[in-house]
């Protein structure tokens, strides 16, 4: 019987399942076999006859701590347990005539479902929050110091403070051959020649170690990543 109720719920007629539970919870005098059959009839064509619904009385043996009042009478959980156990006690015994008599009336009343609460996916919510935090952090850094629009093809000169190298400031000059946009973690790739050897460095654009960025020149490029300069820079060696 529990399987049948589950099937009714799955089929979408929630009202029928609810009424079936009400019938199960009610006393033995309130049973109406034809109604129960009528409720279960429309979604399915049962070959097996379904008959009188006979609820079984369940005596709750749970006792509260003081031993005076049964726990089922005081708590909602006890009532719920009673209904579930009563539902398990339902039997499907009857004649095929009852099923045949109600075959013509196959319309179940329309039931209004309560509106579903739509829960947002937590990963989407977290991503949204992170985007907001990213924007705030970027705006904060931009308000503190001026950061130019560094794009591939820009020849820039920057003052960099190296924390590992005794906090000395070094001046670097090179061409930007790539940029990766990631909010506060935006980085750019700087390529330069040092004593005839090509050196590529990746720096976070909003790093506190970068004291100043100055754009000296902007070359016209048609690529987002200028990796072909790794081969072409040999002509610039001193």
């Amino acid at each position: 019987m529990q399987c049948l109720v589950r099937n009714v719920c799955r089929a979408g007629s929630r009202g029928a399942a609810a009424r079936l539970l009400e019938l199960a919870a009610a006393g033995p005098g309130a049973t109406q076999p034809s109604v129960a059959v009528k409720l279960l009839r429309p979604p399915y064509e049962f070959t097996r006859p379904i008959g009188v619904v006979q609820p079984v009385r369940v005596q709750s043996r749970a006792v509260s701590r003081d031993g005076l009042v049964p726990a089922a009478a005081t708590s909602g959980f006890g009532l719920c347990a009673q209904v579930i156990v009563a539902m398990r006690g339902l039997s499907t015994v009857g004649s095929a005539a009852e099923v045949a008599s109600d075959s013509d009336d196959s319309t179940s009343p329309a039931v209004e479902h309560p509106p579903r609460i739509k829960f947002k996916r937590p990963d989407k919510t977290a991503r949204h929050i992170m985007n907001i935090l990213n924007k705030e952090a970027v705006e904060k850094v931009r308000s503190e110091r001026e950061i130019p629009d560094v794009q591939p093809g820009c020849i820039i000169q920057m003052r960099l403070q190296v924390p590992e190298n005794k906090r000395r400031e070094s001046t670097l000059k090179g061409i930007v051959i790539g940029r990766r946009n990631a909010g506060i973690n935006t980085t750019f790739r700087l390529r330069r020649l040092v004593a005839g050897v090509g050196v590529e460095s990746v720096f976070p654009l909003y790093s506190p170690n970068i004291k100043e960025i100055k754009v000296l020149d902007r070359k016209k490029v048609r690529r987002a990543k200028l990796y072909y300069l790794r081969d072409r820079m040999n002509a610039l060696r001193k």
Partner: peptide, 27 residues
């Protein structure tokens, strides 16, 4: 010489842009 024109003003020294680009063209 596509890369050469793009990298013309980029030398080893900070202010030696002119001589580095000339050296790049002659080499």
């Amino acid at each position: 010489p596509v890369g050469r024109t793009l990298m013309g003003s980029l030398g080893n020294s900070l202010f030696g842009a002119a001589n580095s680009s000339v050296g790049a063209i002659t080499r």
